[in-house]
Design a protein around this nucleic acid. Sequence first.
DNA 1: AAGTGGTCTAGACCACTAT
DNA 2: TAGTGGTCTAGACCACTTT
Lengths: 264, 264
Amino acid sequence: MNKSSINSNKSNIISQEKSINRQSFEPAYIQLVNILKEQIAKGVYLPGDRLPSESELCEKYQLSPMTVRRSINILLNQGLVTTIQGSGTYVKPPVLSNVIFTLGEFYNIFKDKERTKVRVLEVLILKADEIIANKLETNIEERVILIRRLLLRDGDPFLYHMEYLIYDPYRPIVEAELEIISLHGLFIGTSETKFKRGDLTIEASILTKEEADLLNTIPMQPAFRIEHIFFDFEDRPVSWGRFTCRGDRLRFNASIGLSKRQTF
Amino acid sequence: MNKSSINSNKSNIISQEKSINRQSFEPAYIQLVNILKEQIAKGVYLPGDRLPSESELCEKYQLSPMTVRRSINILLNQGLVTTIQGSGTYVKPPVLSNVIFTLGEFYNIFKDKERTKVRVLEVLILKADEIIANKLETNIEERVILIRRLLLRDGDPFLYHMEYLIYDPYRPIVEAELEIISLHGLFIGTSETKFKRGDLTIEASILTKEEADLLNTIPMQPAFRIEHIFFDFEDRPVSWGRFTCRGDRLRFNASIGLSKRQTF
DNA sequence: AAGTGGTCTAGACCACTAT
DNA sequence: TAGTGGTCTAGACCACTTT
């Protein structure tokens, strides 16, 4: 009974609830996101539970409706809650199909230019066969450029790249572009890109002898293949190709639910 | 010169610019997102270009600052623009390291229950070896549960799953859980989950003889392995295991930049 | 000093759900 | 009918960049 009387004022005594610190460099809406996340992580609100209504949160934390709304929208985007209009905001259980993983690993590779080198293995102009013509939406026998490159990390081959480009006699291949700039820009985004959008597919594969030789390992090893096609501003394909990476050199990581390391 | 005089009033004549339709079921902020996306796609604003300032957009589309802000925040989250405080909002070139993949494919598999069956291959209680004890943060020789399951799609083996669970004598293994509910809940999110968060790793691998037999194909084929570890609300690991899927049955797709099919 | 993005307020009105 | 989330306004103030 003692406990219940304490509980009646639990916001001050039991759970030591945080409030918004107006002096903080952290915006109020982020503070509220973190407060709610923490409560969900602690199990104060379990999957399926309804969070306090927006007006209750306004009252409790002395925030305007728009600010509370903003915080809830963030939880919504992060897949942690579901909102049902007219009913409430509910804690969502972690779901595999929501899992997101990124190619962010690639960013790290290209981050320090010093350690990353691009070696051009081959550049040649050839005539498109049926497959290439199909992918690049051009005609068979049309001239295309084939570029094969090897990406070295600390001198160690890391990524093998081959791509077919539309041959444009008016836009000669710049030597420098082949070296580092175009790939670097593709991954980091510093340089100007010549394409508007791209589609990517990741598949599991097994290294061919040629790939294994280039990547300095033995054939028949597992590998990732990342096929890509890029389109220009008129939505015409300009580049089709793929990256190949040793399976033992690349991992994709992701989390669901509330990871220990918060994003904020 | 004729052209320039037309251009001077281009907002009305040349580019037929859209305005916000107040009667539409589409919220104003989404309409503005789509207008801006369309202009970026058309090349009105190229990578590196500055978008009109927020106050200009307010004026042009007769919207309040908060609404314009909301639209720009969406473009920001989608990686299409960068904002620099005090300077402006700039169109971002497509960058590989921003590419996002999801396990959304799995949702489709589980969507219609009728076509998906789970076959339990084995359930046994055994003593943890060093690796298992390490992953589940328990002691060697401690009892753990091993569950091996096969997921069938239209009777065809699609996914092989094995996991080690902490053995809890007070929570007996429910027969039904093993069948479909727990996996179904994991992917779709309908059932209650017993864990708070999880970490996942995707790697490329090659099917062992056993895996190949189970998945109804030949060994040495490429495959995806998805390793997972789930934690309960006290942040203790409760499940460690992995999914194995034939490489020819699973693809991960993604886009960068402005895909033809808009999200709105 | 002028302009830009970033945060926040204190309301309003609406569509929807629960009872 | 009362309560909930969803959208939107018309301002305010701040930190920052540009000129």
